[in-house]
Design a protein around this nucleic acid. Structure first.
Lengths: 342, 342
DNA sequence: CGGGATAAGGAAACCGGTTTCGGCAGGTGG
DNA sequence: CCACCTGCCGAAACCGGTTTCCTTATCCCG
């Protein structure tokens, strides 16, 4: 009985076929835009589909066609503007390709690696995009051994061979930020670092190089460690401001840290940029909303997500990528938080 | 040949069965923890599974078992702290339940409704969570007619019957914020509204009621419309500050608008809270990071997402919910941006 | 007008699990 | 010693599409 509905009441392809007076394969061909169907037949089937509001059963499609129709995006945290921007870029690109996005958060807990990896694999996605992966090489390799194509965003520079990765020109960004402060006349420029990613180190390296080229001797007291959260920017700035020779400018490792720096200044009764200039990194949407609006190094985060997605889609499609590592350009965005020292 | 691998090289259940010297159904029972397997057999199968790193094929599982193992979360935008918090709450709850989260963004484009609805249905999720749905009743009804359980977060108050919805006590929040400002001695208190959601109107209603109870006559000039983006808070505040009788306090419709208010104050050379007190709504993570830290009405956004998810899971499990509408309590969080008028 | 090429469409196999149902072995009670 | 029950396990059907392959109808040209 082709006209019978499935248990949950959703119409099945066989029913559509019966209504249109054709067979299942013909309906399938119509829905997938494949040739081999007469124009009149095609139109008739399409009308029946439209009228009945028929939607294919995803799982069945995935099973028989071998594609899941979804890509898994793995981030550390969801509630973080940086990751949100990447999610946005990935989402937009997948949407255009007609794929769904499955979001997995690792919460940065090493012991959960196996869990989410199993989840990713079991959900049966067509590929995975990992952002700032902390995972060891071996675990990534495990994903790929399961036959799941992988693309990386802002990785630590240990990508397994064959997995494309998208980053930004962090060195150039750190250099530009520092050069900007130097050109304003600053000499005592502090920097707040981030976690030991390759990208973070490159930013600090750019900072050091810019100082060196300007003939400013390096000062270890002005280099503070941190993580990519506001608190560490706050702590670092507090320590710096209380130090023997407080800086006239602070280059924060990212925009969130810069917010922490703002807070430290606020509590100390100081103002940016009058007393201390502040420069961030990332140019998250909130950077321009802060008061004063934050001078920062723009990292095309959304585009990085979009590009990684496009690369992944090409791998899934079976194409071979010419370059497996791409770095998008950073650019300095001068706003209100930087000015010549008083 | 049970030992043969599938085209993509992933081991299949038949292979595992062969390795363990049992049949497919037995492996299936073991993996699903079903009875009818001797302890010794179970252990043997489990060892083989562990050793081979076998992971079930999600699509096949979804097809035959009738459950997809994923829930679709539909939001307007991904790169918005409010939605990010909800995503976080949903993600955590689903993760605990062993389900995957599929994220769909509507981008608030009415003409795309059919598109994402089709995507949601076709991906074959077990249920959907809609946040701040703009959709018409009929379209929501369409989703449910497809047999997809739905839960709503912060809806406009037109939920179709049977779909649970989670909100917050917006009226009480608006009331508390205004009462706080009144108790500080403010009388000229402005409010910036949001889009015409039920929840937004309730906030303004709370504001009006608080003023009324305090014997402060309503002043239409102090009520500005807006949307939930920083720009409208900025515009509204600018207009208010330039008006004939500028307010001594501004109650922004949400935290993003409050950032816009901050900017307007900054550009006017005014400070919060010395010149103008500012109160927000939501208590997004960034509220406490701003300078001055924002006094705001806390809305348990993450919990709202988590609760909606739990309700959805119960519907999926076939349970009947006793109450279909839940409102979580808001609470005033006093920080630095509010003080007595000077 | 006959034979080969081409296009349209359908029957059946298949994807990889889950579920149903029946068989068989071993234990128990009469 | 036999009938009956229980627990363990596997053969086969099934989920709802896609793909392969073959049949049939139509067309074209010598």
């Amino acid at each position: 009985m082709a006209g019978r509905r499935s248990a949950n009441g959703k119409p099945r392809m066989a029913e559509i076929a019966a209504l249109a007076g054709v067979s299942k394969p013909t309906v399938s061909k119509v829905m997938n835009g494949q040739p081999g169907v007469a124009a009149a037949t095609r139109e008739r089937v399409e009308r029946v589909i439209a009228e009945s509001g028929y939607v294919r059963h995803g799982a069945a499609r995935a099973l028989s066609a071998g594609r899941a129709g979804s890509v898994n995006l793995v981030v550390k945290e969801v509630d973080n503007a940086y990751f949100a921007e990447i999610i946005r870029g990935v989402e937009a690109t997948l949407e255009r390709a007609g794929l769904s996005m499955v979001l997995t958060a690792t919460h940065d807990e090493a012991r959960r690696h196996r869990r989410w990896m199993a989840r990713v694999v079991e959900h049966g996605t067509d590929g995975a995009i990992l952002v700032l992966p902390d995972e060891h090489f071996a675990q990534l390799e495990g994903l790929r051994r399961q036959g799941i194509p992988v693309a990386l965003v802002d990785d630590r520079g240990e990508s397994p061979p064959g997995a494309p990765s998208v980053g930004a020109t962090n060195f150039a960004g750190g250099f530009a930020a520092t050069e900007h402060l130097l050109s304003l006349g600053h000499r005592r420029i502090a920097v707040v670092g981030g976690p030991p990613y390759k990208s973070t180190r490159a930013r600090v390296a750019g900072y050091r190089t810019a100082l060196q080229e300007a003939g400013v001797p390096p000062n270890p007291l002005l280099e503070k460690p941190g993580r990519f959260v506001a608190e560490t920017g706050y702590e670092a700035a507090r320590a710096l401001l209380r130090g023997p020779e407080p800086p006239t400018a602070i280059f924060a490792g990212n925009d969130l840290q810069a917010m922490g720096v703002y807070r430290a200044l606020y509590e100390a009764g100081l103002r940016a940029p009058e007393d201390v200039s502040v420069v961030g990194f990332d140019d998250l949407p909130l950077a321009r909303l802060l008061t004063p609006a934050l001078t920062t190094v723009r990292q095309p985060v959304r585009e990085m997500g979009a590009l990684a997605t496009r690369m992944l889609l090409r791998i899934i499609a079976g194409e071979t990528l010419e370059s497996t590592r791409v770095e998008l350009a950073t650019s300095l965005v001068v706003r209100e938080s930087s000015a010549p020292p008083s």
